[in-house]
Design a protein around this nucleic acid. Structure first.
Length: 423
RNA sequence: GGAGAGGUGGCAGAGUGGUCGAAUGCGCGGGUUUGCUAAACCCGUGAGCUCGUAAGGGCUCCGCAGGUUCAAAUCCUGUCCUCUCCGCCA
């Protein structure tokens, strides 16, 4: 979330930002409640101060009568304090709800617009979009012919949107993981496999909302846990509630996890095959930085994504996400969209966001500078290195050959041990 | 899963109802002494919020959440985590 004081002091800018992002948040009501909260807070503290003073004086009371009298006084004060606290809690609950709905401020250079039609593209990958002297198949047809994915089995065993990878597709997945992890380790990232489940408070800290109608999140019944939608959740959670030395920043993490998404409300959207599924494996980049490092880190994450997709020989475009299409915590977001011949259009394969201190404030992730008083919120950034399912869509469709086989991208051959998939 | 022990400041570790935001040691910052280093000695040293130009003041925080009490690190309940032993297993 945003700094409360910042909101009060920049009311108009915050409201304009909400308009730009196409978010309805009751910013004025927030300001009103925040003033009220401060007043109540002061009142509550004053009552606590008086109560504490009375309590302390009881120890020194000379006579039993005096003692009893002060106890009574203390009781009365505590009662008043409790009443004010109840009011305060109610105000804070409402305040908190609005607070969470106010999105991060957007980067001044982010294109302004209501939705993804306003996203801008300025750059393309090193690999040109290929042309074919035959009719290219989509990955579902290719998987069928080459026996690479069992969608029917996935639906039978778990449900629609689940799948089994089979044969070379499995080795391709493992190769992609190794390729991505190795690339990131060379770039100074610490590789980590993360839990696939996380506490709901961590989900909320990173900006994901478990339960509710529109939730993307699978919750585990009778527990405070949910399946993660991305390793961003677990990696971001690592610093939740902690304060670290500024010297240790920036921290670059590479998370390997499974991702689970309900895709509630996504019915009807492009969802054939592997493109939109309920579970996939993802190699995720995550960074904690000092405030003045985050913009450079964002560029670093983007250039690593580009490097990975350039080396895989996948044509893509770089999309600068419009304000209305940004997620709540994002200050700026770049997506890589790969050319997918089966869809005959670009499809999102990576996404990298700079969340500045918005996520860190929710998570309460801070840093302290040695020798200086006080603490500050870190900046957090995330970016997809490779989401296996979408990368497979792109690779299968782009590397298909006239004879029905699929070539293996050069960069993956050291890991797969074969260079073509055919039956 | 069963039994037991424990969670206190950067670390170690006291503290079982008020004078405890918390002894002591280490660490860290500053200083004195010193040819340099070390040692010794002295002073200082948690965080958040808040009032104040400042000096300084107030509130909150002893895993977390509740409860008892005028008053809780300390008593009670729940919960999470850690360690040891047993069981079970990959």
């Amino acid at each position: 979330m945003l700094d409360r004081k910042y909101i009060l002091e920049n009311l108009e800018a915050v409201k304009e930002n909400c308009r730009n992002r196409n978010v309805h948040a009751e910013v004025d009501r927030f300001a009103e409640l925040e003033e009220l909260r401060r007043e109540k807070q002061r009142r509550a503290e004053e009552l606590n101060r008086e109560s504490n003073a009375v309590s302390k004086s009881i120890g020194q009371a000379k006579t039993p009568e005096e003692r009893e009298e002060r106890k009574e006084q203390g009781r009365a004060l505590r009662e008043q304090a409790a009443a004010v606290k109840t009011e305060l809690d109610a105000i804070e609950a409402e305040l908190d709800q609005i607070w969470r709905s106010i999105p991060n401020m957007a980067h001044p250079d982010a294109p302004i617009g209501d939705d993804d039609t306003c996203n801008t593209t300025r750059e393309y990958g090193a690999t040109p979009v290929p042309t074919y002297d035959f009719t290219p198949l989509d990955h579902v047809e290719l998987a069928e012919k080459l026996d690479l994915i069992d969608f029917e089995g996935g639906a039978r065993v778990t449900g629609s949107g689940f799948y089994f990878l089979k044969n070379e597709a499995v080795l391709l997945e493992l190769a992609l993981q190794q390729f991505a992890v190795n690339t990131l380790v060379k770039a100074g990232f610490t590789p980590m496999t993360t839990p696939d489940l996380a506490k709901n408070e961590i989900l909320q800290g990173t900006g994901y909302i478990p339960r509710g109608n529109e939730t993307q999140i699978y919750s585990i019944e009778n527990t405070p846990l949910s399946m993660i939608a991305t390793a961003e959740i677990t990696l971001g959670g690592l610093l939740a509630g902690r304060t670290i030395d500024a010297e240790r920043l920036p921290i670059r993490l590479c998370g390997v996890s499974h991702c689970f998404r309900t895709e509630a409300g996504a019915a009807g959207r492009a969802s054939r095959g592997l493109y939109r599924v309920h579970q996939f494996t993802k190699i995720e980049m995550f960074a904690f930085t000092l405030p003045d490092q985050s913009e450079a880190m964002h560029q670093e994450l983007l250039s690593l994504e580009r490097k990975i997709f350039d080396e895989l020989g996948i044509p893509y475009r770089v999309v600068d996400t419009a304000t209305g299409d940004l997620g709540g915590p994002a200050y700026r977001k770049f997506d890589l969209e790969a050319w997918m011949p089966g869809r005959n259009e670009y499809g999102e394969v990576t996404s990298t966001s700079n969340c500045t201190d918005y996520q860190a404030r929710r998570l309460n992730a801070r840093y302290a500078v040695k020798g200086e008083k006080g603490t500050h919120f870190v900046h957090t950034l995330n970016g997809t290195a490779i989401a296996i399912s979408r990368a497979l869509v792109a690779i299968m469709e782009l590397y298909q050959q006239k004879d029905g086989s699929i070539a293996v991208p050069e960069a993956l051959r050291p890991y797969t041990g074969f260079d073509v998939i055919r039956r």
